[in-house]
Design a protein around this nucleic acid. Structure first.
Length: 113
DNA sequence: TTGCTGACCGACG
DNA sequence: CCGTCGGCCAGCA
């Protein structure tokens, strides 16, 4: 049924698997898919994710620095931050505090395909 | 159909 | 330290 041939759908699967109060990075997802060089494709996947009817918690996906780079695409510059803070994550200067603590590594959590 | 762009990351000068 | 470029895939004009 889910012919996840396109890595976009793979990205959605991973992002949707992110537990509550956790975040991940584009690079981590890209690396999990085996396309570390194509981390920007992951960001593009997020772009269509908000356009799509799928409920993808793209707000839990940030860049390598833990910075909310794509917050502007959530329909508001503060929507992403509000969502993360709502999950118990502290945001300072558009950046996640203790990002390493909240970081959710798909490579570590999803060891099996 | 072709070409450009995109919410990134890492390397190089 | 900072600016620039390459890389990968898919959507859109």
């Amino acid at each position: 049924m889910k012919n996840t041939n396109t890595f976009f759908e793979k990205v959605f699967e991973i992002v949707k698997k992110i537990p509550y109060g956790r975040v991940t990075s584009y690079g981590a997802i890209a690396e999990y898919l085996g396309i570390r060089s194509s981390a920007r494709m992951v960001g593009w996947a997020m772009n269509i994710s908000h356009s799509s009817k799928k409920n993808v918690p793209a707000h839990r996906v940030v860049n390598r620095n833990g910075m909310l780079t794509g917050k502007h695409h959530f329909g508001g510059p503060d929507v992403m931050q509000q969502l993360l803070e709502s999950e118990g994550i502290t945001i300072v200067d558009e950046k996640i505090v203790d990002f390493n603590k909240y970081f959710w590594n798909p490579l570590k959590e999803i060891t099996e395909v």
